[in-house]
Amino acid sequence: MTTQTETTEFSYHPRWEQFKSKLGGWSLTTYGILAFAFLYLPIIILVIFSFNESRSVSKWTGFSLHWYSEMFQDDRIMLSVWNSLFLAVVSTAIATVLGTLAALGLERYQFRGKTAIDSMFYLPVIIPDIAMAIMLLLFFNMSGIGFTPWKVQFFGVKLAVPYSVIIGHVAFNTSFVAIVVRARLAQMDRTLEEAAQDLYADTWRTFQRITLPMLMPGIIGGALLAFTLSLDDFVITFFTSGAGFNTLPVRVFGMIKKGVTPKINAVSTLMLAVSLSLVIISILLRTRSGDDETVQMGF
């Protein structure tokens, strides 16, 4: 290698460089604002028109809570709200237990056939919901389990929720819970468990006193995700419920098919409020446990 240095002539205009360095930042920020406007405007407009006086969802005629009172007086909507909640609570409870067990088994152990089991838990997440829906529909038809409803009192409301729908929800939620809990497990410092064992804790006590408490944010995060997915699900419920059973999204789909009214906007606003409070709960839980945000988003 020769020892001389090499002088290269660079074109350089101080003002232009200064301008360029600022321009990049400005255009990126402008784009960011526009992108968020794209994400939020439709929802904001939807909410605004739920307060419209007339039947129109595109011409503002005046403020009214009329559509909300109609919504609360509509027995079928109210029943579907209770159905949705019951379904979400039950399927989340089961899926959280199953998903956590799966996460522990898959993250902490090596055994034959692990890859196959691993992929099986990812499949329900990847498969499009329409495929999963018809799979379950055929299964319930063929197996004779059918669409028998579970007759139950939930907060004093008489519900009849088909077992098939509950099973369907558990089937996709289990995988989501397993993924979230596994992410948490993978982040966990294993030396803490070793420290516990070093301090005379046996396997069970270590799990009970160290692993489980540290895993809790992951489990709660997984449960919240499952709860949201269950509340939001339309396709699988629609195909596995048989006739006559409505959750709120199924009800809304039916209403949209019949025609657009601000009443749907009102129902949507209600659902929006529920999702929003779930998001806020999860934010609060996350900031308390100080987690990496990307892992906890449900991926």
Binding site: L39, Y40, P42, I43, I45, L46, F49, V57, S58, T228, L231, D232, F234, P249, V252, F253, I256, V260, I264, N265, S268, M271, L272, S275, L276, L278, V279
Partner: peptide
């Protein structure tokens, strides 16, 4: 927005 029901978001565009 992502945690908001997909059906609702689609309906928003319908209107």
């Amino acid at each position: 927005p992502f945690w908001t029901n997909f059906l609702i978001r689609t309906y928003a565009w319908l209107t």
